[in-house]
Simulated scan of single mutants.
Amino acid sequence: MTEFSFDSLIVFLNRRWDDIFALVAEHIAVVAISLVIALVVGVGIGLLVWDKPISRSIAITSAGVAITIPSLALLAILSPVLGLGWGPTVVALVFYSLLPIVRNTVVGLREVPSHIIESASGMGMTPARVLLQTQLPIAWPIILTGVRVAAQLTIGIAAIAAYVAGPGLGSYIFKGLSSLGSKNALNFALTGTVAVVLLALLVDGLFVLITRYTTSRGLRA
């Protein structure tokens, strides 16, 4: 096996900056698209079931069971139907994002104090307006925490999607693993892995700022 050389890594990076930035952009794009879809679907499900015990249990349990399916197995199942590349990648990422978003939407809505709901109703607001204009804004920080968790999941799983020719940094990781012993195998694997970790840290920090600036000042800790 080829030994790691820092000088070799620097040369490798200098020669492939354009390629690496393109893969980072693809990784961000596929994660962002998947999170937006999962946010719409997950919050929608949460809004529908949060006050219905049976439906709520079914939704959360189903999402919990679904997330136990190994990502490689799910991608292998999706690829014959959706082909290779973006299609199975986006569907898989949305699939794995639903549990934290649905669960946190339900938890956030259920934790809104009852006296606030009663006050809003007493002002003549319909149940739908109370839900959308009172409960949802109060639950928003908890919902965003679920999205934040989903983002970390999807950044990691997006790398595995290279198994089905998915976009992003996973292609470097798989290329390195499939060519162990060659000159740049470790450089490919290390570059892809470190870039995924750094991207996850940056996205997590971004969600801290989003939470701060989209949460009502009265709800901030």
Rank of each mutant, 00 (worst) to 15 (best):
I33R: 06
S34R: 03
S34Q: 06
L35T: 09
I37T: 11
I37N: 04
I37Q: 06
A38W: 07
A38K: 03
A38Q: 08
V40R: 08
V40T: 08
V41F: 11
V41T: 12
G42M: 04
V43G: 05
I45H: 06
G46P: 04
L48R: 08
K52Y: 06
I54V: 15
S55N: 12
S55F: 12
R56I: 00
R56G: 00
R56S: 03
I58S: 07
A59M: 07
I60K: 01
T61E: 13
T61P: 07
S62D: 08
A63H: 00
A63I: 01
A63Y: 04
V65F: 12
T68N: 08
T68F: 05
T68A: 13
T68L: 10
I69Q: 06
I69R: 01
S71G: 08
A73L: 00
L74F: 00
L74H: 02
L75P: 02
L75F: 01
I77L: 11
L78W: 00
L78C: 01
V81H: 05
V81Q: 04
L84F: 12
W86F: 12
P88I: 00
T89E: 06
V90H: 03
V91M: 03
A92Q: 02
V94H: 03
L98C: 04
L98A: 03
L99A: 02
P100C: 09
I101N: 09
I101Q: 10
I101P: 06
I101A: 11
V102W: 05
R103P: 09
T105R: 07
T105K: 09
V106Q: 12
V106K: 09
V107I: 15
V107S: 11
G108C: 07
G108P: 09
L109A: 10
R110H: 10
E111Q: 14
S114E: 15
A120H: 00
S121R: 14
S121T: 15
G122F: 13
G124Q: 14
G124M: 14
L131V: 08
L131A: 10
L131T: 07
L132D: 11
Q133M: 15
Q133V: 14
T134Y: 12
L136T: 09
W140T: 14
W140A: 12
I143R: 00
I143P: 00
L144Y: 03
L144P: 04
